[in-house]
């Protein structure tokens, strides 16, 4: 059995001493997650706002579907993408399976419903407040979307963070589609899972500490932004 002190010191030396291996893992994780979440925002924010304001038959069904997808089990999503990208699958020709791009796609698919659903709710609430004014200005429903997205910017930061949280904590899907190949598709979460099962607790814990610190830093930033937001939206 390992002594607590032993673990702690090796964790610290690992983080401190760097080790190209550790840095590589951290950078890959950040790269994959940030890319996936950025694309999810690029697609999901306008899509969510559109869903809030557009009126079309079947809209209710789409909303329920998107809400359901928010809680989609990552391993199932991973499996679906695996099947799509595998050599005999419809997108097999792209040769993306077991690459960082495949992991980005998996995280994008997991984060998109969160962004769309939360944006839809936020924008719909703001629309009830702004509707009369914007209609009076002649903006029209779809023409109101830029105004609403901008005025909801502080709530939408929280929405994006929820997406970032889901992406960065995720193991199942990226393990399946990325394959956890050392130095290529090995991320913080997949290494933690692997090293723990191999019994290399110091490395697993070092990665755990880094992952948590990053999460803490991001949430600190989010809190700061929400304080600025509170100022702009009055007391609320």
């Amino acid at each position: 059995m390992l002594q607590d002190a032993t673990i702690l010191s090796s964790v610290l030396s690992m983080i401190g001493g760097g080790g190209g291996r550790l840095l590589e893992i951290v950078l890959l994780s950040l790269g994959v997650t940030i890319t996936a979440v950025s694309f999810a925002g690029l697609v999901g924010l306008p899509l969510g706002a559109g869903l809030a304001l557009a009126r079309f038959p079947g809209r209710t069904i789409v909303i329920v579907l998107v809400n359901t997808l928010m809680g989609f089990p990552p391993v199932v999503a991973g499996l679906a993408i695996f099947l799509l990208l595998s050599r005999s699958g419809p997108l097999g020709g792209l040769g993306l399976l077991f690459t960082p791009k495949a992991m980005m796609i998996a995280q994008f698919v997991l984060v998109l419903p969160i962004v769309v659903a939360l944006t839809r709710q936020t924008i719909e609430d703001l629309w009830t407040e702004y509707q009369d004014h914007l209609t009076s200005l002649g903006a029209g429903r779809l023409g109101s979307i830029p105004t609403l997205l901008w005025d909801a910017r502080f709530s939408l930061v929280t929405t994006m963070l929820a997406g970032l949280g889901r992406a960065s904590a995720e193991v199942g899907a990226i393990l399946i589609v990325g394959g956890n190949i050392a130095g290529f598709t090995r991320t913080m979460t997949t290494s933690i899972a692997l090293e723990t099962s191999k019994g290399d607790l110091p490395l697993a814990m070092a990665l755990g500490v880094i992952l948590m610190s990053l999460t803490l830093a991001i949430n600190g930033l989010a809190y700061g932004i929400s304080r600025v937001g509170a100022r702009f939206s009055g007391k609320s």
Partner: peptide, 30 residues
């Protein structure tokens, strides 16, 4: 006809922006 009239509501709608931006937004829409 829409551009030649305006309305102020019972509960004034304040955009989550500065006072100046509330003006420039309305003017941009016009």
């Amino acid at each position: 006809i829409r551009r030649r009239q305006a309305m102020v509501f019972q509960k004034p709608v304040m955009l989550r922006r500065s006072v100046r931006a509330n003006f420039t937004h309305a003017l941009a829409m016009a």
